[in-house]
Write a protein that binds this DNA or RNA. Structure first.
Length: 589
RNA sequence: CGGGCUGUGGCGCAGCUUGGUAGCGCGCAUCGUUCGGGACGAUGAGGCCGCAGGUUCAAAUCCUGUCAGCCCGACCA
């Protein structure tokens, strides 16, 4: 009756971990497949996963790293409910702003509740209730909590679920300098966290310059399967595509350029057909025409938050598309809608496929605002629409023959484009958003009335920062970045166990000896996964061990008669024979 | 929300065109032989064929509806 077990450190029944030999067909991303096969997680519903023992252990280790580094910068851990009342989110408008992505429900008294997608409101209100003096600040509060977002399309397993675990922290300061300091402290903490998690990552500017004001950076873990595109240069420049600015060429003296002339270009409504026709009928002697010689004028309809709309024309070199995300970032908070047939009907001067600068701009007949790509500088010469069906203008020179209402950074960014800071040609890469640090400023504090008394006894509004790390997503990202053809290769600090002991053989004495060896290893403080399944052949155990990916695998088998066991390094595949008497010491070195 | 596709034991799938008592592989259980790189034999357990309605003597199969899931895109503080 007094017998005690050590179940938390000695888990013997491997098969209970949910190991699958074949992954479900639905899983396509490598981390998703490996997490299912190795028994880390199990799907409960779309975008919802149960964490099994092996996965939960690693999740806890990621949490521990995040927690340690948050504590280093003075963060105090709290925990809010995941189930939240409607009122605070009503106050900040997010009950409606969050739209379909918010999980809403009602209690038995018909009160509205929500499952928290993020907790700015709750933290702000907590500080408002408890703090009233500048002497209470600065403060950093954080939690490691389950978040809920009703994603339109959950995918890729843990990487994008409807329920996920996030560390979110919030800083509260009286001064802008204080906010900046809290932001920098978080940035440094995040760098330590991401280094300890072993990620290859990039810190990118999340805002475009046009947004102005508050600083915001994203920590992207570099991965083929990432959902975010970013750019980087050999000189170390990194940014979201939204934030990339174009280096405008110097203006060209247009004194000697030929005059503009209209030409017949029948059936050339697209850049492709136009370039083909130009090379056919108006061939240059020095080189062929290309899309880059043409000026494409794209029309969109902007819809502002108040519901009003405004047409906008964007002129870009014909070899580039307008990038929807870059455009959205520039015109925010307005949303971009297509310029549909109804819109064209309102502007009879716009000839679809042959639109040129002549009918664009605030001063033109259409009065449509006209913005140019920064590459279209004064003195550049273009083929562009002549505003008549089947006609284009050649040698139309910017600054001489037409002007616009300004410039806009909306053209797509391409590999090879120069970095804005002159650090070389840009490379396009993919990343997974793993962290976000953001100087919120006083928006939430104002809406929720978070004020404290300053040293003069006057009420001042607190300024806030908000900082997130995707904790459960990080587990998937580690697997995504650290595996081979056999399975997961855990970094030491994140492995669910330190040592995986495999007994290869059937003799009961082997298992008795192994029990003792495992106890000795555990006595040194190492966590041991012990595969003592007696009726499973060694090959199966080896494959399972490689799939699970614990860094050190100890094989107890035929060598035991000579007092040795085999120690294998999962990452390198290196095998060494170690005397049983020296094993515990060897594993700890 | 648009496009493509799939629902059949725990997992992977066949059967559906042409309606006639639900099958295969893996896994699982028992016994025996194996046992350091995914062993073998024998015997078993396990499935209201996603759900509802319809057609029919008879539906996994045909028809209608519905629900769920996957992939691509849109969306994603």
């Amino acid at each position: 009756l007094d017998e005690t077990t050590n179940e938390d450190v000695l888990i013997r029944v491997l098969r209970a971990f949910g190991i699958h030999q074949a992954p479900p067909a639905e899983a396509e991303i490598v981390s998703h497949r490996l997490m299912l096969r190795a028994g880390l997680i199990r799907r409960a519903a779309a975008g919802l996963y149960s964490w099994l023992p092996l996965g939960l252990r690693t999740l806890r280790k990621v949490e521990a790293i995040v927690r340690e580094e948050m504590n280093v910068i003075g963060g105090q851990e709290v925990r809010f409910p995941a189930l939240l009342p409607r009122e605070p989110y009503e106050t900040t408008d997010r009950w409606t702003e969050y739209g379909e992505n918010l999980f809403r429900l009602k209690d038995r008294r018909d009160n509205d509740l929500l499952l928290g997608p993020t907790h700015e409101e709750m933290f702000t209100l907590l500080v408002k209730d408890l703090y009233s003096s500048y002497k209470d600040l600065p403060a950093v509060l954080y939690q490691i909590q389950t978040k809920y977002r009703d994603e339109a399309r959950p995918r890729a397993g843990i990487l994008r679920g409807r329920e996920f675990i996030m560390k979110d922290s919030y800083s509260f300061d009286v001064t802008d300098e204080g906010l900046e300091a809290a932001y920098q402290a978080h940035r440094a903490a995040y760098i330590r966290i991401f280094d300890r998690l072993g990620f290859e990552y990039a810190i990118v500017q999340a805002d475009s310059g046009a947004m102005g004001g508050s600083a915001s950076e994203e920590f992207l873990v570099v991965s083929q399967n990432g959902e975010d595109t970013f750019v980087r240069s050999p000189g170390g420049y990194t940014a979201n595509v939204e934030a990339v600015t174009t280096i405008a060429p110097a203006p060209i003296d247009f004194a000697d350029l030929p005059a503009a002339h209209v030409e017949q270009t029948p059936n050339t409504p697209t850049i492709e057909t136009l370039v083909a026709h130009a090379n056919d009928a108006f061939a240059r002697t020095d080189r062929p025409w290309t899309g880059a010689d043409t000026l494409k004028n794209v029309l969109v309809m902007l819809r502002f938050p108040d519901g009003s709309t405004e047409p906008l024309a964007i002129g870009v070199p014909g070899d580039r598309e307008v990038d929807a995300k870059r455009l959205e970032a520039q015109v925010s908070p307005a949303e971009v809608e297509p310029f549909d047939e109804a819109a064209f009907a309102q502007y009879p001067d716009l000839v679809k496929g042959y639109i040129g600068p002549g009918v664009l701009g605030a001063e033109s007949v259409t009065a449509i605002r006209y913005l140019l790509d920064p590459r279209v500088v004064e003195g550049t010469s273009w083929i562009t629409g002549a505003n008549e069906p089947g006609c284009h203008v050649f040698d139309l020179v910017a600054g001489r023959d037409f002007t616009a209402d300004g410039t806009i950074e909306a053209a797509e960014v391409r590999a090879g484009d120069p970095a804005p800071d002159g650090s070389g040609p840009l490379e396009l890469a993919r990343g997974m958003e793993m962290g976000h640090i953001f100087q919120l400023g006083r928006k939430y504090a104002e809406r929720l009335g978070l004020q404290v008394l300053d040293e003069n006894g006057k009420l001042v509004t607190v300024t806030m920062g908000s900082y997130g790390v995707g904790v459960s997503r990080a587990v998937a990202a580690v697997v995504e970045g650290s595996h081979d053809e056999y399975g997961i290769v855990w970094p030491k600090e994140l492995a669910p166990f330190d040592v995986h002991v495999v007994v290869a053989g059937k003799d009961p004495s082997l298992y008795e000896a192994a029990d003792g060896i495992v106890a000795e290893i555990e006595a040194t403080g190492l966590e041991v996964l012990y595969d003592d399944r007696p009726k499973v052949s060694p090959g199966v155990k080896f494959k399972d061990a490689e799939l699970i990916g614990v860094p050190t695998i100890v094989v107890i088998g035929k060598g035991l008669a000579d007092g040795v066991v085999e120690v294998k390094d999962r990452a390198t595949g290196e095998r060494t024979e170690v005397a049983v008497t020296a094993l515990a010491a060897a594993l700890n070195s």
